[in-house]
Amino acid sequence: MTADIFEITLLSLQVSILATGISLFIGLPMGTWLALSQLRGRKVILSLINTGMALPPVVVGLTVAILLWRSGPLGSLRLIYTPTAIIIAQTIIAAPVVTGLTASALQQLDPRLRLQLMGLGASPVQMVISLWREARLPLLAALMAGFGSVISEVGASMMVGGNIRHQTRVLTTAIVLETGKGEFQNAIALSILLLILAYLVNLGLTIIQQRGAR
C-alpha cells in the first residue's frame, strides 16, 4: 500500500500541475485579451467564461469520455483511461477559472495605467508584462484557484481515467474506491495526504505571492 500511495500521490501531482500549467498557458493570454480588448462581443465571452468557472467536473468528464471513447470521434488516439485523458479533462475544468480570474485581475487595474505605460514608451508586449507584474497577486490567486479546482475533482478523473491501479489512479479516485470498500482508514489517510498536498502547493504559491506584496 505504501508504494501505491507514493505512486498515486505522484500521479495526482503530475496530472494536476500539468493541467494547471496548460490552463495558465491558455488562460493568461486569453484572459488578458478579454480584459484589454474593446471588442463588442467581449461581455458575452466573459459571461460564458464565468459560467465555465462553475463547470461541473462530471459534465466535463462525460464530454471528454464521449470524445475519447474507442468508438468516439477521437477514439483512434487511444487516450481514454490514460493519464493524458485526465489532463485533458482537468485542463478543460481549470482553463476557464484561470481565464476568468486573469481577466478580472487585469480589469481591476486602473484603466489609465495603460495610457501611462504607453505614454512612457512601452511596446504592447512591454505594457502587458508590466500589467501582469502589477496584477501579480490576483494572478497568482487565479493560478491557485485553477490548481485547487483540479487537484480536488474526482468525477472527471474517474470517468476518463477509470481509476486503474498503477495507471490512472489518483488520490481522489483512490479515496472513492477505499470508501466504497469500507476501508475508512485508508480513505482517511489518503484524504489527509490530499489536504497536505493541496496545502503545500498553495503555501508555495502564497509565499511567492506575498513576497511581491511587501
Binding site: 495605467l113 501611462q116 505614454g119 512612457l120 507584474r133
Partner: peptide, 15 residues
C-alpha cells in the same frame, strides 16, 4: 511615443 513623455493627474506608479 518614445520621443515624448506623459505625466497624468494621478502619479500611477507601479508596485
Amino acid at each position: 511615443r518614445r520621443r515624448i513623455a506623459l505625466v497624468l493627474q494621478e502619479p500611477l506608479l507601479m508596485h
